[in-house]
Simulated scan of single mutants.
Amino acid sequence: MDRLKQIEELNQFLLEEMPRYREQAAQFPHTVSEQRRLLRSLMNLRPPMPLDPAFLRPQDKLLSTEREEKGVVDGDRLPGTPSDQRLALWQGDITRLKVDAIVDAGNSALLGCFCPCHGCIDNAIHSAAGLQLRDECGRIMKAQGHPEPAGRAKLTEGYNLPARYVLHTVGPVVGRQTTARDRADLASCYRSCLELAAEHGLKSVAFCCVSTGEFHFPHKDAAEIAVGAVKAFLETRSPVKRVIFNVFQDLDAKIYRGLL
């Protein structure tokens, strides 16, 4: 089956579940790139609900093919920093990293981003992992019965990601000024993720820049808190042996290079 037909069949499956989007979907040209954009949009919009294996099998096949086409980056092979070989800095797409767990910075609903094709890390991770990730998050949050507070962490499978697991954390939303509570909550995000990773015997974790995007935490302050919290944790006896600071913007890369 060619790529276009494969994608269009997945789109039709989702449109049968969500017929209210048929009119908008009909406006997408029948090209691979546009139909793929439609598929990502529909996946972003779909609420957590039971998943049909008839959809999951071709979805997983498509996502695994795309994963290999993007190229998997082995986190264990990244060079360590001069001062500490347990720490590494890598600039790129976090969904390419092969590690025990990557960190997703979400909101308090912890269900992923529902804005079609939004550029946030939450959207990127859920889109690459597949609909199983939102379904598992939905079951966790239903059992919890209340929104996820800032500074804590949850663990799920990685599904179609190279990473085995995803650590989900909610960072603080910063107003006009960064408060002491904001700083404490951000440090707690890093500690909570590492503690949960250690609890499950994970050895490598890759962090995104928690709270620096939509939540407006100042980049330099956030990096200093992140590096400090991680270094302090690595001084404890823990199975976590490698922490990667994953950055996307040049600004963050420059800041972390200075700190590390």
Rank of each mutant, 00 (worst) to 15 (best):
Ala198Thr: 14
Gly228Trp: 03
Glu235Phe: 01
Pro58Cys: 11
Ala153Gly: 08
Cys113Ala: 04
Ala163Glu: 03
Arg257Tyr: 03
Leu87Phe: 10
Gly75Glu: 06
Cys193Arg: 05
Lys142Ser: 07
Ala229Gly: 02
Pro149Lys: 07
Tyr190Glu: 06
Glu195Asn: 11
Arg176Glu: 13
Ser127Lys: 02
Val247Ile: 11
Val103Pro: 00
His30Arg: 15
Pro218Asp: 06
Thr81Asp: 04
Lys231Gln: 13
Gln6Ala: 09
Arg86Thr: 05
Leu131Tyr: 05
Thr65Val: 13
Ile7Asn: 01
Ala232Met: 12
Ile102Gln: 04
Leu89Ser: 04
Val99Thr: 12
Gly145Pro: 01
Pro79Ile: 07
Val173Ser: 06
Lys241Phe: 02
Leu97Val: 11
Glu214Asp: 12
Gln132Lys: 14
Asp84Gln: 14
Glu148His: 08
Gly106Ser: 15
Tyr190Trp: 06
Ala226Trp: 10
Gly75Asp: 07
Gln249Asn: 05
Asn107Cys: 05
Gly80Val: 10
Val99Pro: 01
Gly258Val: 01
Gln177Met: 11
His219Lys: 14
Ala226Ile: 08
Ala197Thr: 10
Gln177Ser: 15
Phe245Val: 02
Leu39Ile: 03
Pro79Ala: 13
Phe215His: 08
Val240Asn: 01
Glu66Asn: 04
Arg176His: 12
Pro239Trp: 13
Thr179Trp: 12
Lys220Leu: 09
Ser192Lys: 04
His30Thr: 15
Leu51Tyr: 11
Leu89Cys: 12
Gln6Arg: 09
Glu235Tyr: 01
Leu161Asn: 03
Leu259Asn: 01
Leu196Ala: 01
Leu251Thr: 09
Ile7Met: 02
Lys154Asp: 02
Arg86His: 09
His216Pro: 00
Ala197Gly: 09
Ala184Gly: 04
Leu155Tyr: 08
Ala187Lys: 08
Pro50His: 02
Ile225Arg: 00
Ala223Arg: 02
Glu214His: 05
Gln35Leu: 08
Val243Ser: 07
Gly171Asp: 02
Lys70Glu: 12
Val227Trp: 06
Asp122Ala: 01
Lys154Trp: 11
